[in-house]
Design a protein around this nucleic acid. Structure first.
Lengths: 188, 188
DNA sequence: GTCTATAGAAAGATAGAC
DNA sequence: GTCTATCTTTCTATAGAC
């Protein structure tokens, strides 16, 4: 029976997240979705092609359903980073980071996909923040917020601790609000 | 000719850092140090045994040469986190984090070594901070500092950007000094 | 689109000569 | 302690029947 493409992609994501690019095998993926290995090559030309698919799906789930500007900038910011933080806490690892560490010049397609993934995250966050502060400040806060969430995820992965993630969310929100108050947009 | 153990360990560290646990092979390591694969098994019983060796060496290099209490707490804190930040920026990835993501219940010895590695980092930082603030505050700031540095490393790995690391160092130092001022030790 | 079967390379690890 | 040689398993990927 036909297996849906999204099933393959989201299962590949689980494997990449937990075992990394090198550690996830096409055979494991095939078993997990109930196919034979060779059938996967009908859908994807090779293992590397799974990486953009996995990261695009994740981007879609994170930013795809949003309605930019429907809320106050701060409510929107809180909503997005809490969604990201919850996913990272629940899954215990970040697929994007595992793939970032696990890809290299030998896997250029995967490497590009990883860059696009994090660039999209930063751009989306900066876009929200830039409604209340200058673009350069927004970009830095977006970067630091993502860095904080990634770092806090390490403590979930290593110790199972969720406290660091809670503080990361709280401190990032505070930082954004402080910046909005200290450097409001002059052009309005 | 005999190859020094430290050569093997620090070369293994490079490989684990850049390729991860699964992606680094015993053959690559052998080639890199100028041995045949089978000779490695004389020194280490298996691939997993390299992990504690790699992390112990790194801990030794980071905290081993220090003289606790020889300086003011804040000077010491700055020194340590700048050493860590410089290493992470120069290498572009954190071995500890790559191994944390790349090990699992199937590699219990490696997993334990990773836990010990990060626990030692946190304990050492918290020990310095606790000279100026209560133990629980010190522990949280130590955790958040490490998380920030790990997260900033992601931006070095993905984009080659070093700015996030600079901000991570500066903000962590500020946070520590603020905490020392806001919640000084009462018992002295 | 899924399967069986297989190619060909590379992995971790061991045996035994020197 | 290092080597050659080998075992066994697993890997990515392809060929071809249904």
């Amino acid at each position: 029976m036909k297996v849906m493409r999204e099933t393959i992609v989201s299962t590949a994501r689980e494997l990449f997240r937990s075992r990394g690019y090198a550690g996830a095998s096409m055979n494991d993926l095939a078993d997990a979705v109930g196919l034979k290995k060779s059938s996967l090559y009908v859908r994807f030309p090779n293992k590397e092609a799974l990486v953009p698919a996995v990261l695009d799906l994740t981007l879609q789930e994170t930013f795809g359903q949003r309605d930019p500007g429907s809320k106050q900038w701060d409510a929107e910011f809180v909503e997005v980073i809490e969604l990201i933080a919850t996913t990272l806490t629940d899954r215990g690892r970040c697929v994007g980071l595992h793939l970032a560490y696990g890809t290299s010049d030998e896997t250029p397609i995967a490497k590009d996909a990883v860059r696009a993934f994090f660039q999209a995250h930063r751009d989306n966050l900066a876009s929200i923040l830039s409604r209340a502060m200058p673009a350069d400040v927004a970009r830095n806060i977006a970067t630091d917020t993502l860095a904080r969430l990634e770092g806090a995820t390490a403590f979930v992965a290593i110790f199972g601790e969720k406290d660091a993630m809670k503080r990361a969310v709280r401190l990032s929100i505070e930082e954004a609000k402080n910046a909005a108050a200290a450097k409001p947009l002059s052009s309005r």
